[in-house]
Design a protein around this nucleic acid. Structure first.
Lengths: 204, 204, 204, 204
DNA sequence: TATGAATGAGATTTCATTCAT
DNA sequence: CATGAATGAAATCTCATTCAT
C-alpha cells in the first residue's frame, strides 16, 4: 500500500520538524490521507512512532555500515557516521532509545540490535587500532548523539541545528584517544537506560 | 509565603524529572496545595516555569563563580562548573535557552546574562592560559551541556542520568586544547538560538 | 462601619461600569479592602448585589419623589424621572427586576414597592391630567427603562451611553398621549416578570 | 452536515433563552452532540456565536426586505419589521452590535451592512413620506430594539417576553411623526458604538 | 474584626481514538 | 479500504467562597 509509506514519511517529517507531540491529525493531513486511515495501518499513535523509529534506525544503521566499508581510517568512519546520524535526525527518537516507548516491541528491538552491532563494529575497529579511547561503549555515543541532536519543542524548527555539528565535533574529539580524563561510572548500555537509575554523581 | 517556595521547589523537581510538560495539577499535588493556589502565586504556567528557570540559572551562575574563585587550574574550573551545572539539572531549561519560552522577560534575560558572564570569565581564563581550544564560545558549552542533561519525557525519571557525567567528560576532553578537528560554522551564541536557522551540514 | 459603605459604593461603580459579572475580588480591591472583608459584611455575592440594588432603587425613588414635588407639568415630571433614573444606571439592576435574583428578599421587595409607589403617583397624576396614555402601567416604564439603559458586557464602558437618552425620549414621546397604536397584551407588572411567560406575539 | 445545523440551532435557542454566556457544553448537550463536536465545526466559542449572529441578522434583514415589499404604508412597514425582528430575538446579538465580539469579521460586517441597508430603505421611505420623524437614524431603532429585546441572564427563560411588544409599540409611537420632544445628541450610528463614548446627559 | 491565602467546581479548548458511511 | 465526523478525557485557567492568622 502506497498510503502506509506516505504516512510514515509524513510522520518522520513532522516528528523531526515539530517534535514528538505533533497532533496525529496533522500527520494525516501532511500525508494527504484522512486521520482514520492512519488507524487502519497502525493500531495507535505509539505504533506509528515505533515505525518511524525503526525506519530511521535502519537508515542510521545503513550509514554505519557504509562508513565501515568506505572509510579507510577507523576513526574517520566514526566521525562520518556520527554526523550522518545527526542529519537523519536520530535525536528525534531519543525518547525511544531511553525506553519511554516500549523497546520490547520485536521490531524496535531488532532495529536497535542491528544498529548497535553496526556501530559496534566501527567502535571495535577504531579501538583496536588505538584511534579511540577504550573506556567508552557504543551506547555512550548513541545516547550522547541522540541528546545533542534532539529537537526542541515548539512548532517552528529545532533552533540549534546550526550548532549541532560543532558539538558533535567536540564530543568526537573527546572520544579520540588518548583520554585526558577518567570517565566516571561504567560504560553506558542501551539496556541500562530502560529503567530509572539513581544519579551517580561521580566526577573528575 | 512558605507555599510559594514549596510550589517552586515542587515545580523544579517535576520539571527535572518529567520534562517541561508536566501537568500543573501534578505540580500542585506534589507541593501539597490545590491547583488554584499555584495560580494565586503565578499568573500562568509560563510564569511559574520562568521562576524555576531563573532560580536554577542563578544556582548555576553561583556555581560558575565559585569554581572561578576556588579552582586553581583554569580548565579544572570549567570541568567543575560543567558537572555541577548538570547536577543542578540545567538541561530542564533547555527550551528556555532556545527561546521557546519568552526569553525577553526581564528576569529571564537578566539571569541568562549573569550566567553567560560568569561562564565567560571561566572561558577567558582557560583560553588565555592555552588550556582550552580557542574556537569555542560560551554558548557552545551551555547548549551542549543543556542538551546532554535534558530530561526525557514521561513521568518516570531521566533514565540516562547514569551516563550524563560520562558524556560531559567526553565533551570536556574535546574542549581541552589542542583541537583535533575543525569545528564547522561559527561559534554558537545564545542569541543565535532565538530564531530558526538553516541546517548547515558542515563536516570533518 | 465605614467599610460596609465603601464596599457598596465600589460594587455599584463596578457593576455599572463592567456589567453584572465583575469578579468579587475586583470589587474588594476597588473598595480598598481584602476580599474576605466583603464576606464579613455580606454572606454571599448575591446579597451584596441586592444591597446595591436596594441602594440604587432608593435613589431612583428619591428622584421620582423630587420630580413629583418640583415639576409642575405632570408629564414633565415623568420625563425628568426617566432621565434621572437612567443616570443612576438603573439598568444595571435589570436582572433583579426580572426576578433573577430573589426579589422576595424583604429589603429588595420593600425597595421595589417604594419605587413602584413613587412612580405610580407620577403616573396617576399624568394620566388623570390626560397627559399620558392610559393603557400603560408603571412596570411598563420601569422595565423598558431598565432594558434601554442596561450596560453591555465587557470591561470597558457601556458603549451606547451616548444614545440612551435619545431612545428614552422616543419612548417617552410614545408614552405621551394620545396613543397612535394599540398596545398588545395587558400592562406589565413587575410581579409578572417573576416567572416565565409564553411569548405572546400580538402586533399592530 | 446535519450536526452543524443542529448546533447552530441549539446555540441560537440557548443564546436567546439564557443570554450570551451559556456554557458551550450546554449548547452541545442541547444539540445532542459531544462538546468536542462543536469544536470540529467551529474553531472557538466566538466563531460559533458569530455564526448565530450572522444567521439571525440575515433573517432580520429578510424581514426588513419583505416588509418593504409587502406593506403599503411606509410606517406600517417599520412597525412590522420591528416586531418581527423582536420575534427573531435580535436582542441576543446586542453585544455584537456593540462591538463586544469582533465586528470586523468580514461575515459579521457584511451581515450588519446588509441589515442596515435594508432598514435604511424602510426609514427613507417613511421619512420621505413624512410618516416618521426626521431626526432619527437607522441605528437608533436597531440599538433600542436590541436593548428592549435583550434576554436576561440566567438559564430559565426571558421573563419579560410578555411585555416586549408593548414597549416596542411605545417606541414606535414615539418614532412616528410628528415629534413631541427634541432628541439630545446626534443620531446613533452602529459604528459609533464601537468605542466607549462619554456619557452626554442631554435632556428635555 | 480584618485579611491574605487556599481551594474546588466549572469553563474553554485540545487530541488520541472510535464510529458510520 | 478509506474517510469525515464524533467523542471523552485531560489540561489550563477563573472565581465564589472558606480558612487561618
Amino acid at each position: 500500500m502506497r498510503n502506509r509509506e506516505r504516512i510514515v514519511t509524513a510522520a518522520r517529517e513532522m516528528l523531526v520538524e515539530s517534535g514528538a507531540d505533533v497532533p496525529l491529525d496533522e500527520i494525516a493531513r501532511r500525508a494527504g490521507v484522512g486521520n482514520a486511515t492512519v488507524y487502519r495501518h497502525f493500531p495507535d499513535r505509539t505504533t506509528l512512532v515505533h515505525e518511524v523509529v525503526v525506519f530511521v534506525m535502519g537508515r542510521v544503521a545503513d550509514s554505519a555500515e557504509r562508513a565501515a566499508e568506505e572509510e579507510r581510517d577507523p576513526f574517520a568512519a566514526v566521525r562520518r557516521f556520527t554526523h550522518e546520524a545527526a542529519d537523519e535526525r536520530i535525536g528525534a527518537l531519543c525518547p525511544i532509545l531511553a525506553g519511554v516507548f516500549h523497546p520490547d516491541e520485536p521490531c524496535v528491538a531488532a532495529a536497535r540490535e542491528r544498529l548497535e552491532n553496526a556501530v559496534r563494529s566501527l567502535f571495535d575497529r577504531a579501538q583496536s587500532a588505538g584511534r579511540m579511547r577504550p573506556d567508552v561503549a557504543v551506547a555512550d555515543l548513541l545516547v550522547a548523539l541522540s541528546q545533542l541532536t534532539r529537537p526542541l519543542p515548539g512548532t517552528a524548527c529545532p533552533a540549534n541545528d546550526q550548532f549541532v555539528h560543532r558539538h558533535l565535533q567536540l564530543l568526537l574529539d573527546g572520544l579520540e584517544a588518548p583520554a585526558r580524563s577518567e570517565l566516571p561510572g561504567t560504560p553506558a548500555t542501551l539496556e541500562g537506560l530502560r529503567h530509572p537509575v539513581p544519579l551517580e554523581a561521580a566526577r573528575q
